[in-house]
């Protein structure tokens, strides 16, 4: 019974982290870059939102500013990566580390700041789970719609080309550096926005709330891809699959917690889940190689697989 009672909250959290995972999708899937900035920018979003709301600012303005703050964090990583020539993973780690200090500054050196529901009456909260779930779902759908439009434009297209084939992109006049920066900026903006949403939902922000966010984001992206990849071909549906991935992840987490797993073991569990799901496409290919002698039909099948996974 406790399990069923905790389901709505699991779904809501899943959607919130699913929104974050859309940000991760942009870098990991579209730009083909693993951007670790998100562990920091997620907390930045929460910090900006809570600090602004508690100092009397409008909630929606605060959400927008959380998005912008994430964009700035992404800009730093983008510049580290493209203009400083630092590998993307390391560039993200550098920004993430520096964001820890910056987030503490935003929070006036407090590790966490409560956001009183009684005082501010914000819409997304643990206290009203069902309406919160609907609002989060609406935000996710709106975001997907905007991104669907964006990636249908010439600029969005050039981002996809940059992630797919840089030589071809440059040969066709696309500035790959600029496009990478745009992608990382946008991604971290979305991540910070979801950090802002989560801090409302849980009623506080915390400098450590983003720890492991990249792993959860990747989990959502990969679970969504492995489970829905075959049937969801359209770009908007792929983003939706990512949100579903986040929801499935949180349902699984809630189940294992109810089965008696210690909350402190969650991060270990998350990392292992991601490792296994990352390995599935690799193992699949290996098994196929072992059991089928290489034939032309097979080669084309593998190419197809590779193209789909790419």
């Amino acid at each position: 019974m406790a399990f069923l009672n905790s389901m709505p909250s699991a779904v809501t959290q899943g959607i919130i982290w699913g929104i974050m995972a859309i940000g991760v999708y942009l870098t990991f899937k579209i730009l083909d870059v693993a951007d670790l900035t998100v562990d920091g920018s997620f907390a930045t979003g929460g910090a900006v939102l809570v600090v602004m709301v508690t100092s009397g600012q409008n909630l929606y303005l605060a959400m927008f500013c959380a998005f912008l703050a994430g964009c700035l964090a992404g800009l730093a990583t983008g510049i580290f990566h493209t203009k400083f020539g630092i590998p993307a993973i390391l560039a993200g780690i550098l920004t993430q580390l520096s964001l820890y200090s910056i987030n503490l500054r935003i929070q006036s050196d407090m590790a966490n700041i409560p956001l009183s529901y009684m005082k501010y009456k914000y819409p997304i909260t643990l206290r009203n789970i069902t309406p919160s779930m609907i609002i989060c779902a609406v935000i996710a759908v709106c975001l997907i719609a905007i991104l669907y439009w964006f990636f249908g434009t010439e600029l969005g297209h050039s981002l996809r080309v940059t992630g797919s084939n840089q030589s071809m992109a440059r040969a066709n006049g696309i500035n790959t550096d600029t496009n990478k920066i745009i992608g990382i900026v946008l991604s971290n903006g979305i991540v910070a926005l979801s950090g802002g949403i989560l801090s409302q939902y849980q009623g506080f922000c915390d400098v450590n709330m983003g720890r492991g966010a990249i792993v959860i984001g990747l989990a959502a992206v990969i679970i969504g891809d492995v489970i829905f990849g075959k049937i969801f071909q359209n770009f908007a549906l792929k983003l939706l699959a990512t949100v579903f991935g986040g929801v499935i992840y949180y349902i699984v987490i809630t189940v294992v917690l109810n089965l008696g797993m210690k909350a402190n073991d969650l991060k270990l569990f998350s990392a292992l889940v991601v490792a296994v799901f990352l390995a599935i496409p690799y193992w699949r290919a290996k098994i196929r190689q072992r059991f089928h002698k290489p034939q032309n039909a097979n080669v084309s099948q593998e190419k197809k697989e590779a193209a789909e996974n790419a």
Partner: peptide, 13 residues
């Protein structure tokens, strides 16, 4: 993508 080589890429389809 090739058809837009050398052209500005904005928010057009």
């Amino acid at each position: 993508v090739a058809n837009r080589r050398g052209k500005f890429r904005g928010f057009g389809w």
